[in-house]
Nucleic acid binder design. Structure first.
Length: 357
DNA sequence: GCCACCGGTGGC
DNA sequence: GCCACCGGTGGC
């Protein structure tokens, strides 16, 4: 039995995606790789007025049929992530996966680079395997928290769609116009007043996404270490019942394998092998210098092929999203951490969002 | 390969 | 000056 994957979908500039997208592995065998028998979900954003538009466009533009669900035979949770700059204003309005303040900033960020954002949350029915859009992030988190013990079924959606049943067509299909990512099941809902933020990184990054927690005070926390320290420093939260078990920094995994750049082999590994006299080990000088010196540029060349002929995995919109990101940073070597010394600090982040009772 | 963590820079 | 984002390390 595989671990319990949940899926996310990321739509990056769907209007630029060409017909080859329809041959994406997303449509075929990959869907069967996640062997689970519970339900899955998809999340939609906090406001979802464009839901019908999305679904319609998916069905009309790509001609997806219910038969595609056969590939999603296992219970999964999914989020759909959109490129906010590539979609209409309505979708941008609908895209505040984060707080309003943050999403606005997010959108403003887009002149030089546009990051994908979570466009929708979806969950798969454990009975009919159709994907159902979840109206809010909060509802999605609620379902995700107990997805293993309480599989999602279409009838669950009657809470917000009273007539829904397995007889209705799926809300969304896993086609090539979106990136889908596998979310993790049974992640606790954030404590009241806290926000769990998922930030999708640009394609070609070494990591797919980051999770942050925003405390009611507005402080943004990036790791369990920071959470622990914050709670230690603010014992009132503990008194209110906040505990470490309510936090998880697990991130979804992109279904598109090449979305995340592979990390080159580490020098220490080769070096150690060589030092230990292991047969077949390489001297550093024998290693492809591409892997050492400039992973960014060289891999970018491989990813950044010509636009329309580019296969789905490296569709032109992804290039658009990521090329600016690839800009080499000029760091002062002396300032870089290179001695392995442990480092730890908390950042102060101002968030203007008012508390939610 | 994946995960956890966090330093540091570019952009605001 | 701040901080969101990405890069990269170490551990497993």
């Amino acid at each position: 039995m595989q671990p319990h994957p949940l899926k996310l979908t990321i739509k990056l500039k769907g209007d630029d995606i060409n017909d080859s997208d329809l041959h994406s592995p997303l449509n075929s065998s990959k869907m069967g790789n996640n062997a689970l028998n519970d339900s899955a979900f998809t999340g939609h954003l906090e406001s979802a007025p464009q839901e019908q538009i999305d679904v319609t466009s998916l069905e009309e533009d790509h001609g997806m049929e219910d038969g595609d669900n056969q590939y999603s035979e296992n219970a999964q949770n999914q989020l759909v992530v959109y490129d906010p700059a590539a979609n209409g204003a309505g979708e941008i309005e609908a895209a505040p996966y984060h707080t309003g303040h943050q999403s606005l900033r997010f959108l403003r960020y887009s002149t030089s680079r546009v990051l994908p954002s979570v466009g929708a949350f979806t969950v798969q029915c454990a009975h009919c395997f159709k994907w159902r859009l979840i109206p809010t992030k909060e509802k999605y988190e609620e379902i995700r928290e107990h997805i293993i013990e309480q599989p999602f079924v279409c009838e669950t959606a009657r809470e917000w769609r009273p007539e829904i049943s397995c007889d209705d067509p799926a809300d969304i299909f896993q086609d090539g116009s979106r990136l889908w990512a596998i979310d993790k099941p049974n992640i606790a809902q954030p404590p009241p007043g806290w926000q769990r933020l998922l930030r999708i990184r640009g394609e070609g990054s070494t990591k797919f996404a980051d999770v942050y927690y925003v405390a009611p005070s507005g402080k943004r926390l990036r790791s369990m270490v920071e959470i622990q320290k914050y709670l230690d420093d603010h014992p009132d939260y503990i008194k209110e019942g906040v505990s470490m078990s309510q936090f998880s920094f697990q991130i979804p995994r992109p279904l598109q394998e090449n979305y995340v750049r592979k990390r080159p082999a580490r020098f220490a590994t080769v070096h150690d092998a060589s030092r230990l006299g292991m047969p077949g080990s390489l001297e550093p000088s024998e290693v492809n210098p591409i892997a050492w010196a400039g992973p960014d540029e060289n891999i970018e060349l491989q990813l950044g092929g010509p636009g329309l002929s580019t296969p789905y995995m490296v569709s032109p919109d992804l290039k658009l999203v990521n090329q600016p990101v690839k800009k080499k940073r000029t760091r002062t070597p002396s300032k870089r951490r290179c001695d392995g010394e442990p480092v730890c600090h908390l950042r102060k982040v101002k968030v203007e969002e008012p508390h939610r009772p």
